[in-house]
Amino acid sequence: MIETLTRIPVAHYSNLKARAGYSIKIDKTEIALFKVTNGEVYALENRSPHPKGGVLSEGLVSGNYVYCPVYDWKISLVDGTVQAPDEGKVQTYQVEIKENIIFIVL
């Protein structure tokens, strides 16, 4: 069985500022977009894996990590893994950029 991927346009690349988070919604899923200083864009679910949560798009971005604004957990933008000593993982989403448009691939 061949899986069909859907590319959903979500933002203009030129509108994203480096080291800032942006919240988008696809159906009922909240996703945080992050543009890092080298220009790469990452997409994660917009909720910290901490039991009490936290909105990641409001977090501080440093390198390829975002810090949960509520609990200061350090989370990889690349693979969604929470860094030790904390534990957990958030969903990541594939990003494509074409002609200034950012797409999330589902």
Results as ranks from 00 to 15, higher is better:
38 N>R: 05
105 V>A: 01
75 I>C: 13
100 N>I: 02
65 Y>D: 09
45 E>R: 05
57 S>W: 13
19 R>A: 13
25 K>L: 09
18 A>M: 03
79 D>Y: 07
4 T>A: 13
105 V>D: 09
51 P>R: 07
62 S>D: 11
98 K>P: 07
87 E>H: 11
62 S>G: 08
66 V>F: 00
52 K>P: 02
22 Y>K: 07
70 V>L: 15
77 L>P: 04
2 I>L: 09
79 D>G: 03
69 P>Q: 09
78 V>N: 10
16 L>A: 10
84 A>T: 11
38 N>H: 01
18 A>H: 10
72 D>S: 15
47 R>Q: 05
69 P>S: 14
93 Y>H: 08
80 G>D: 10
100 N>H: 01
26 I>L: 14
69 P>Y: 14
20 A>D: 01
57 S>V: 10
52 K>N: 02
21 G>F: 02
63 G>T: 00
26 I>S: 05
104 I>D: 04
3 E>D: 07
12 H>T: 11
77 L>F: 03
86 D>E: 15
58 E>K: 02
93 Y>P: 05
94 Q>V: 11
25 K>A: 09
80 G>Y: 03
18 A>L: 06
94 Q>M: 10
7 R>M: 04
93 Y>C: 00
71 Y>F: 14
42 Y>A: 11
56 L>Y: 09
1 M>V: 13
63 G>E: 07
57 S>M: 07
5 L>V: 01
73 W>I: 11
66 V>R: 02
68 C>S: 15
4 T>K: 15
83 Q>L: 13
